[in-house]
Every structure is written in C-alpha cells, then in structure tokens.
C-alpha cells in the first residue's frame, strides 16, 4: 500500500466529524446564525465517551452489540472505498458489492437494535430506514454498474480510476447522471433533507435519530462517529466521480478528492437550507427518480460505448 492510500484512510478517520461540522456550519450561515464550532462533533464524541451507558431493561445483547459492529461495518466500507480512487490495484473484483452490503449489514444491525428496544417509536424509524434503503440500493448498484461499464473495470479501484478523462469524453452525460443519482442516494442513506430532517428530535417524521434514541454514553459516541463515517464514505463516492474529469494523480488527486469531499458537505448544507423536507409519500418518488437516472445512464453508456 502506498502513502496515498494510507493517507486517504487516515483522512477519512480524522476528518469525518469535521464534514458534519461543515454541513452544520453551512446551514447556520444560510440561516444567518453563527452556528456551532466546526469541531463540535469531536467534542460531542469525546464527551459521550467519558460518560457511562444506560441500558433499558427490555434490551438484550443485540442492543449492546449493535453499535460496535455497526461501526466496524462502516470502517470496512471506508477501507474498501477510500483508497480506491488514489491507489493502483487496490481491492479485488466485485468489492463494490462488499461496499454496498457492508453498509447494508450496518443498517441491519442499527435496525435490529432499534427493534430490540421494544419501543414502537423506534420501530417506526426502523421501518422507514429499511423502506428508503430498499429503494436507494438499486440506484447505487446500477450507478456503480454504469461506472464499471464505462471504465471496463471490476474492482472499485479500476472502476473509479478508469472512468477518467476518456470516460467523460465518450459517455459524459451518463457519468453526470450517475453523479446526480449518487448524490440523491447520499441524501437518502444519511437521512438528510429532503428524506429526513436531522434537526428534528422527538418528532414523528424522523428516521435515523429516532432509531438511536435509546443509545447513550460510549455507545452513542460510536453511533455518532459511525454516522459521520458513513456520510464520509458516500461523499467520497460522489466526490471521486466529480474530480475524475480533472485527470489528476498522486498527491494532487488526494488533495482534490479531500477538498471535494469537504465541499460535498457545503452542497449538502445548501440543499438542506434551500429545500423543505418532502412528505413521506413523496420520498419514494424521489428515490425512484434516482433509480431512473441510474438506469437511463446505463442504457446511454451501453449505447455510447458500443
């Protein structure tokens, strides 16, 4: 492993809470507030780690196990994805599926823990999470299939590095559509507006926050850090596609990629400030739209490259 791949993983581990801070700061600027410090999430995590945990009497070992395994799954996803754009020959054939289903396992455990508390409220959040992700998954996988089609690679590294300048020249519109589709998936998978409002607490509309209501102390620190890492992972996927037409390599690519990931936070914050949360009935239509974009991109890519 070269220094670039190692740095990309370390950047993800260290900067993921900062990305959340950037999203929140962007929203604060739009609202005319000063907002929380950019490093607030680091302080939150440190504070939570010093506290003790409280477990409800109705929970079982599943609830205690879930936060650590969820974080482990997201870490696997980070290690699979983060070095892929910068490291030659990283990963193995079909590791995109590992990425998708490591995140799927993380989601399953979060949902199982939410159901384990026996709270009907958390059950609702769990149901919505599964509903959204079932619709987001085809958009993500078909999108990755488009990239694989354009680049001719099978591992994430060859997929993300192969869809460079030549890919944008031959099938640029398809890649742009995939980019939009990935961004919608990012919003849905990380429970951002318009699918969920991360600011609402104790409301009937929320998705991710309601599932982790019962977590406390170090467990909640793991959940919070895991959520930040997940946002980082999806942002890397979106950003690596966005910087691929520049044709950079080495440290320039790594720097551009990290900057693009952090800028993705600004875009997410902007979307959250300018859009209202859509109604529950309308969210599937948005995700179906993302699927439609991915499938359209696949058809176009097949046509342009044949």
């Amino acid at each position: 492993m070269t220094i670039h791949g190692l740095l990309s993983i370390i950047a993800g581990l260290l900067l993921a809470p900062l990305l959340q801070g950037i999203v929140n700061r962007t929203k604060a600027v739009f609202a005319g507030r000063r907002g929380a410090p950019l490093l607030q999430q680091y302080r939150d995590i440190a504070r939570l780690l010093r506290k003790g945990a409280v477990f409800s009497g109705t929970t079982t070992w599943i609830f205690r196990l879930a936060p650590s395994i969820t974080l482990a799954c997201v870490l696997v996803a980070l290690v699979v994805l983060a070095p892929a754009p910068v490291e030659q020959g990283w990963g193995f054939a079909g590791d995109a599926l590992l990425l998708a289903y490591a995140l799927g396992l993380a989601r399953f455990l979060t949902v199982a823990a939410a159901l384990d508390t026996g709270s009907s409220f958390e059950g609702m959040g769990a149901s919505r999470e599964v509903f959204y992700s079932a619709l987001a998954e085809p958009a993500l996988l078909v999108g990755i299939a488009v990239l694989a089609r354009v680049s001719g690679g099978t591992s994430l590294a060859s997929i993300l590095q192969g869809a460079g300048v030549a890919g944008w020249v031959s099938a640029g519109t398809a890649l742009a559509l995939v980019g939009v589709s990935f961004f919608v998936v990012l919003l849905a998978e990380n429970s951002r507006v318009p699918f969920d409002d991360p600011n609402t607490h104790l409301e009937l509309t929320m998705v991710h926050e309601v599932m982790v209501l019962d977590s406390s102390g170090p467990d909640f620190a793991l959940v919070t850090y895991g959520a930040s890492l997940k946002l980082w992972v999806f942002s890397v996927l979106f950003a690596s596609l966005a910087v691929s037409p520049l044709g950079l390599s080495g440290f320039a690519l790594l720097g551009a990629l990290t900057a693009a990931v952090l800028f993705t936070g600004v875009i997410v914050g902007t979307v959250e400030s300018t859009m209202a949360r859509s109604s529950l009935a309308r969210a599937p239509l948005l995700l179906a739209g993302a699927c439609a974009l991915s499938i359209l991109a696949f058809i176009l890519a097949s046509r342009f490259l044949s």
């Binding site: 239509l285 179906a288 699927c291 439609a292 499938i295 359209l296």
Partner: peptide, 17 residues
C-alpha cells in the same frame, strides 16, 4: 400513480432502445 408512471416511463425508454 406517479411512481408507477415513472417506472412505466423507464420501461418505455428501455423498449424504445
């Protein structure tokens, strides 16, 4: 409905190609 309409549009697109 709108989501089935979208799916029908996709099918029509695939059929067109």
């Amino acid at each position: 409905g709108y989501t089935p309409s979208l799916l029908a549009g996709l099918l029509a697109l695939a059929a067109s190609f």
